[in-house]
């Protein structure tokens, strides 16, 4: 009796590795395909930089365009204020 049971118990135990191999393999394939799908994500930060670059070129947004005007205004204020204070 005990011997028979051992054999019966042994059979499913022997089957287990091959079955698990298939489960693992199919799970791996599924996971890999899922990873590939998820991995094709949109590079938002890089796209934003690229968009800014194109917009700069199309609209000709020059940072020098605004900065010199600020600078030319700043010294005037800088010169006027101390002078005004000096007079007072």
């Amino acid at each position: 009796m005990k011997r028979v049971l051992k054999v019966i118990k042994g059979q499913p135990a022997q089957l287990f590795p091959t079955a698990s191999l298939w489960i693992v393999l199919s799970a791996a394939v599924f996971t890999l395909s899922a990873c590939v799908t998820i991995n094709i994500y949109f590079p938002a930060a890089a796209a934003e930089k690229a968009a800014d670059k194109i917009i700069d070129e199309v609209w000709q947004i020059k940072k020098n365009d605004t900065e010199p005007s600020n600078k030319s205004v700043a010294p005037e204020n800088g010169n006027n204020e101390p002078a005004a204070k000096g007079i007072k």
Partner: peptide, 30 residues
């Protein structure tokens, strides 16, 4: 042996995903 093989496979999977990530994030063509 199966566990080892599985571990190897998982390591390969992770490294390949990392590689793909690096490739995908490399740059944005304009």
């Amino acid at each position: 042996t199966y566990a080892k093989a599985l571990l190897k496979f998982a390591a390969l999977l992770v490294s390949s995903i990392a590689a793909m990530n690096a490739f995908a994030a490399a740059d944005f063509e304009i």
